[in-house]
Write a protein that binds this DNA or RNA. Structure first.
Lengths: 190, 190, 190, 190
DNA sequence: GATGAATGAGCCTTCATTCAT
DNA sequence: CATGAATGAAGGCTCATTCAT
């Protein structure tokens, strides 16, 4: 279990994500993952103690990456709407580009692998996002609702739109992105 | 002679939904389902040829019920916003009351059990909902965007809010419901 | 287990024989037998305590019937070759007409159902046949070999010929029967 | 790396043959086979996709081996009776030495595993044997009957004699072998 | 470290048998 | 008696995990 080769871990992760997207968590086996990643079953056990560890670590990696990407180019000192727009667009872009991670996280949520603790840790990573929402409320730019509700309203709508586009292989143009943003913004603005 | 007790099907369904909510599709077995439902493993096979059939049939039942409930009390001749409000509230209420079905459907989407065909059939059941959206567009009450996008925007946000509430055991008061409705409405209105 | 209706037993037997011929002992179930016979699974258990009893009783019935038929029209006082011919023809005819019994007995021989005891009882039913062979030996008409060997030589060749004809749906004409008889007779005659 | 040990296949075959001889096809399970062969159940599935494949492949192996052995030491250019004697003795010896294969083939014939196709392939392997019989007919040494009938007459009688000896643990002496050969020969000779 | 054959617990499914109707 | 739904032990097969090479 001494990961000499970080590259292999990445390949295992990638293989897992693709398989879960295609078959769901219920449909994958360790040997499928190994095969897809291009090496023997036993090799996976050099990097992960067992299946659960693999799933949990991947889950954590996904949710960390996801959260980090949210804040790419985010400047807390910029005006609220600009900041909000930045993060919203990150969210959309990341969800599209990392659709398999989206699916994986969703499937994990109701699996025996993920504990409440892990689930909660996920939330904490989005603290800056929550703080931004609170700032918006303070600046009276958005509705005076619980920040969680605003966040979920935004993320939920983005998520379903991305799923729809991916399943139906639709291209999301910039014009469309702005229309969607507008829906979200109109929904929450005061 | 003991006639086939169709009520057992409902019990099997109920047991399955609870278990999938708690453990995910990946975590359930036929014997768990039988045990939860209160009878022997073999009994499940009197009503369903195999695990896949059970999952698929339950999926179809859920998506049918879900769609039907959308339109409870829906009067197509009422003013657009009233009609929209009715359906929106149904959606919210059903998602809350049948949270396990929500989870089940979500888990099935990326499982080896559900085919594209089954997935598509689901959509068709929501035709009146789509027609209403189109009417709203025609009446210039809502944004001139693809109806699918509007529908997904609405459903996605509702879904994530319901999930959040359920996981955190929050009570959803009527005031809150109306606030949420307002977010959705503001998001889509022209 | 009080067989009020002997007819049902016959139907169960008939169904079993057909199924074993088609699928082998390894391929049949109690419900298949019941279905083929035309009634419910449970009904079979009114007439037979369990599967083993059904198989064993049918086996005994078959071997009894088989043995009895051997001696139809057999007159111990007739000349040896005439008597031998009579029994030989009976053997051939019965094997053809009751091919499924032939197969059933063969399949049972190496099954967990039939005990050595049952197997031995089968032999004893052919005592008159053995006695006739001994008489032939005494009359110096046939070879001075162990009677068992003569009997097996005769029965074995008949059996394989019948199997071949049945599998290939060949008709066995009287001329052919006589040719076959001649082979057997030439083989054993002194 | 531990390479696939093809020797295991032979062990699986041997275990299967012994078990089928003792219990019949109806009485064996995959775990019994694995246990008898000396390894875990799952191991059998490394070498055979499922039970059917194991049975079918073993059947084909047995019938090939059986056919090949028929012709050990067979010289087509030797006089007819010599050639016939060689093959006949091979048949007898092989049936005695490989009694479990004999039983296995017999049990398979009426099983759900063996198809007509497989059954027919078996026959083709005995072509040289058939040709020899035809030659005997042409040389007017044996009766002018269908070659199949001659072949079955010979094999059938040998088979039942071998079965009898094996069940009753009789030793077959060379004198006896020759007596039996004589019965067969007298039966078919012109 | 890497491999993949070997292991055996556990899952899906069948089926002999029981039992309520 | 007859029925066939219900039962649960047992069989076929899978797959997470181990281990010899």
């Amino acid at each position: 279990m001494k990961p000499k080769d970080e590259g292999k871990i990445a390949e295992i992760y990638a293989a897992t994500l693709v398989l879960v997207k295609e078959q769901g968590l219920a449909g994958i086996t360790m040997s499928m993952i190994a095969k897809k990643a291009g090496f023997a079953t036993g090799t996976v056990y050099i990097y992960f103690a067992n299946k659960e560890e693999l799933i949990v670590k991947l889950f954590e990696k996904c949710s960390t990456d996801y959260a980090n990407d949210y804040f790419a180019g985010y400047d807390p000192s910029s005006p609220f709407k600009v900041a909000f727009h930045t993060i919203w667009m990150n969210m959309l872009r990341y969800s599209i580009e990392h659709f398999d991670e989206l699916v994986f996280i969703e499937q994990c949520f109701h699996s025996p692998f993920i504990t409440d603790e892990t689930r909660k840790a996920t939330k904490e990573r989005l603290l800056p996002w929550r703080e931004l929402i609170e700032r918006g409320k303070k600046e009276k730019l958005i509705k005076q609702l619980d920040a969680s509700w605003i966040m979920l309203f935004v993320r939920g709508s983005v998520r379903d739109l991305v799923k729809h586009c991916t399943y139906n292989q639709l291209k999301i143009t910039d014009t469309f992105k702005e229309s969607l943003f507008e829906m979200c913004w109109d929904g929450i603005k005061d």
